[in-house]
């Protein structure tokens, strides 16, 4: 087997006395899609945010292509410069899009290329246009976020991340803030990315997406990683009672 893109080993995270992540072990293979599912408050976002060190973990290690993120050695924080360098290679898409409202779609995408990758305005503008074309927004480049639908905003956010040419993409419930009819356009862009071989970690409540697109599904509960397996094994024949219970609630809520 290849070396993992993201290698999470024995990671623990506390919020004060609250044990939010408990000895998490998870390997994310290059070119594969991993979906993180589980009940609310189980620590999915926390784990995802530890991967690009938006959240500090307290023990264990997370390696991106072999290099530990956040720490030079256990307990010793890496310099900000080095952390920023590593973050360039990790794209992140948030539930709330988090576009910068004072910039157009194109400027949102170009910003990182200019400030982080040091491109000229012209070159960054070209690349931004390409990224926006790719998510189907070639005709909305000059719009500010206030003039875009939720689904379009989220696609701009995806373009902003992929323009940086990351080696891994993290998605935290990318469709949860969207009206149901706008979910599809965002999932389609994500599917296309997966098909191209992007390494992706996706926190989601979209079981359909997990079933059809994921290579592996990880189930979390109460800060623990309860199970990691193929979508079929986790979603259709789960052995763990906690997963069964979660799926039962999910199906009840989604049937009518």
């Amino acid at each position: 087997m290849q070396a993992a893109s993201v290698d999470i080993r024995k990671v623990n995270k506390f919020y004060g006395p609250f044990h939010a992540l408990k000895d998490i072990d998870l390997a994310i293979q290059p070119g594969k899609v991993t979906c993180l599912i589980g009940p609310s408050g189980s620590g999915k976002s926390t784990l995802l945010r530890c991967i690009n060190f938006l959240e500090e973990y307290d023990s264990g290690e997370i390696r991106i292509d072999g290099e530990m993120i956040g720490y030079d050695a256990p307990g010793r924080r890496m310099p900000g410069r080095k952390l920023r360098g590593m973050r360039r290679a990790i794209g992140m898409v948030f539930q709330q899009f988090n576009l910068w409202p004072h910039m157009t779609a194109r400027e949102n995408v170009a910003e990182g290329l200019i400030r982080v990758r040091g491109m000229s305005r012209a070159e960054a503008g070209e690349r931004a246009a390409e990224a926006l074309e790719k998510v189907g927004l070639g005709d909305k480049m000059a719009n500010h976020p206030s003039r875009l639908s939720g689904g379009q905003q989220q696609r701009v956010a995806i373009a902003r991340a992929i323009a940086m040419e990351p080696r891994v993409m993290l998605f935290d419930e990318p469709t949860s803030a969207l009206d149901p009819e706008l979910v599809g356009e965002v999932l389609n862009v994500m599917k296309a990315l997966a098909t191209e071989g992007m390494t992706m970690v996706v926190v989601t409540h979209e079981m359909g997406f997990a079933a059809h697109v994921a290579d592996q599904v990880a189930f979390m509960e109460k800060g623990e990683l309860v199970g990691v397996d193929s979508p079929a094994r986790i979603l259709h024949e789960p052995e763990d009672a906690r997963i069964q219970a979660f799926l039962r609630t999910y199906h009840e809520r989604n049937s009518f």
Partner: peptide
């Protein structure tokens, strides 16, 4: 919104650039 600052951190922007490009313009408004 803190998320907009985090989005800038997530792509690797330096803190000074975040202040200049995100925090100041939006904060001033």
């Amino acid at each position: 919104p803190h998320g907009q600052i985090e989005a800038a951190r997530a792509i690797g922007m330096a803190e000074l650039a975040i202040v200049r490009r995100i925090l100041l313009p939006l904060g001033l408004v």
